[in-house]
Amino acid sequence: MAIVQHLDAQFAKGLADWLNQQTDIPVKVARAGDRLEGGKILIAGTNDHLVLQSNLTLAYTPEPRTCPYRPSVDAFFDSLAAHWPDPGTAVLMTGMGRDGAEGLSHLRAKSWHTIAQDKATSVVYGMPKAAVELGAAVEILPLEAIAPALVNAKY
């Protein structure tokens, strides 16, 4: 599992530490060269974009430089669509702007199960709303239903 959140690099370690207190699943800041593996959570940890490379290792890149959201969910989702060998599950949650909507759409086109958080439980309904408007979400779920959906996912 990977978490890509618009979060300045100086806060990533604190988020990882806090999440480690909330779950039994180990959480750490992703480093270049790490791999996505079952049973652990990696958090994007720089102001560059976290991406999956063709060799299935993670890397950070400043491109696209024009993207105001750092790290960009679209950049990460697009790299998954390009390189991950099998469909999985992707979730787009509360946030400002449209980041992640197009990437979620690209994953859906690759047969991924895609979930957007619903309006009622979103603090800011920008990102999930954009995904819903694009038809990128297979499911639109309230916050409390997202974790059970991930646990019960076929992928």
Rank of each mutant, 00 (worst) to 15 (best):
V124A: 10
P142D: 08
L50N: 04
L104Y: 03
A120Q: 15
D78Y: 01
T89F: 02
E102N: 12
T66R: 15
L134Y: 08
L141Q: 07
H106N: 08
A116L: 09
I146D: 02
M127D: 07
V138N: 07
A90T: 03
L52C: 00
G88H: 05
L80S: 00
F77Y: 09
N55Y: 09
R108F: 10
A120S: 15
P85A: 06
P128M: 07
S72M: 06
L143G: 13
G135F: 14
A131G: 06
R108C: 08
L143H: 09
P62G: 04
T66M: 14
H113W: 12
A101S: 05
L141A: 09
C67K: 06
P62D: 09
D86A: 14
I115F: 11
D99G: 09
D48P: 00
I140H: 02
A137P: 00
G103E: 00
V124R: 11
L134E: 09
L56G: 10
P85V: 06
A131K: 01
F77V: 06
E133H: 10
F76A: 02
R98E: 13
D74A: 03
D48W: 04
T57R: 13
V51I: 11
C67V: 14
D78C: 01
V51P: 05
Y60Q: 01
F77M: 04
A145Q: 15
P87R: 10
L56T: 10
T57S: 15
G97Y: 10
A130T: 06
A82S: 10
I43S: 08
D118K: 06
A131W: 04
K110A: 11
M127Q: 04
A116Y: 07
L56V: 04
A116S: 12
A137N: 00
G100N: 06
G103H: 03
D48N: 01
A101P: 00
V132G: 04
H113Y: 14
A136Y: 03
T114A: 07
A82L: 09
Q53C: 13
G103V: 03
D118V: 01
F76H: 06
T114H: 12
T57V: 15
V132T: 07
A101N: 05
M93N: 12
L107V: 01
V51Y: 02
A145G: 12
A44V: 07
G100W: 02
A75W: 00
T66V: 13
E102P: 05
G126I: 00
P128S: 01
P142G: 08
R65I: 14
P71C: 07
A82P: 06
H113T: 14
L58H: 05
V123D: 13
C67F: 08
L56C: 08
A101Q: 03
E144V: 13
P128H: 02
